Computed example of a mutant assay.
Amino acid sequence: MKIIKKTPTDPDAILLMDELSKTLESITGDSGKNSFDPKDVCVPRSLFLIAYGEGEEPLGCGAIRPIDANIAEVKRMFAKAKTKGVGTKILLTLESEALKLGYSTLWLETRVINRAAVSFYKKRGYIQIPNYGKYINNPNAICFEKKLL
């Protein structure tokens, strides 16, 4: 597997994010599209990644966008079903790249009902924090943080 920096307008990125939106819609009733602006991951100190399999098939994606000088937010994390380890590799790459970009912390939001995602992040060292930004006072949202240093 290889992980490549791309833009969110890349055809593979659009394909993966459409699949993510359908998956989120089926789990949470919300596609998550309103929580992601592709321009947010095209600014300095942001990035969008795509994981590719042996046959150049796009397997998953993930992005970070700046919140402030020290904190980046993980966005559009997705790995296709039955692609063991892809999500972990994407997340580890995002963490490594965030450090290189000068961030010390990653934040993210998922939905409480998305138990697989909640478990995924907890197992990878993310701890629950108070909801931030647009997620404040949203009882369906759960937010996490991981210190990178």
Rank of each mutant, 00 (worst) to 15 (best):
M1C: 09
K2M: 08
I3V: 13
I4E: 13
I4H: 02
K5S: 15
K5I: 14
K5V: 14
K6F: 01
P8D: 01
T9R: 10
P11F: 10
L15P: 01
M17L: 14
S21M: 08
E25L: 15
S26G: 11
T28M: 01
D30S: 09
P38K: 10
K39H: 05
K39T: 03
K39R: 05
D40Q: 13
C42D: 11
R45M: 07
L47V: 07
L47W: 05
I50E: 10
I50M: 11
Y52R: 02
E54V: 11
E54C: 14
E54R: 12
G55H: 14
E56T: 10
E57C: 08
E57H: 04
P58W: 12
G60S: 15
G60H: 13
G62T: 06
G62L: 05
R65A: 15
P66D: 07
I67K: 14
D68R: 04
A72C: 13
M77P: 04
A81D: 11
A81Y: 07
K82E: 13
K84T: 05
G85I: 01
V86D: 01
V86E: 02
T93R: 09
L94S: 06
E97P: 05
A98P: 09
L99D: 00
L99P: 00
Y103C: 01
T105K: 10
L106M: 04
L106C: 05
L106W: 03
E109A: 13
T110I: 10
V112H: 00
N114R: 03
N114H: 08
A117L: 08
V118E: 01
V118P: 00
S119V: 06
S119G: 13
F120T: 09
K123W: 02
Y126F: 15
Y126W: 11
Y126N: 04
Q128R: 13
I129F: 11
N131S: 12
Y132R: 10
Y135M: 12
N137L: 05
N138G: 01
N138S: 11
F144H: 10
F144T: 06
E145T: 07
